[in-house]
Amino acid sequence: MKFGIMVNEGPFTHQASDSAYHFAKAALDKGHQVLRIFFYYDGVNNANKLSQPQADDRNLIKLWGELGKEHNLDLVVCVAAALRRGIKEEILAEGFRISGLGQLIEAGVAADRLVVFGD
């Protein structure tokens, strides 16, 4: 099955990004396809490479990037939401790309299921 995932919160204040990450990983482990993960609202903060979580805590920015690399995932950060929050190419973590909101609708059209994670 083809999944699309939307992440609406950043990596610290809410559990949403953690839940989305575990969901994506479980879907891939089961042999499903994850077409695209779209980061919207404060979710764009998941792509901020300047973020430095404490050493004993999980680093979702890195984890997303690694999962993306391992499975060749399309990690898309919404440009309008990103600009508002100061997320630009120069601080974009590895594995992410910035694109338009059309990519979310496209994922919704192409995927068998689109699942939203937020607060």
Binding site: M1, F3, N8, F23, K30, H32, V115, V116, F117, D119
Partner: peptide, 20 residues
Amino acid sequence: VDYGGFVDLVGEHGPTQTWL
């Protein structure tokens, strides 16, 4: 259920509405 079960639920049941 675990996360795998979460994935199965999404797969088995049509659309998902996330009550945020």
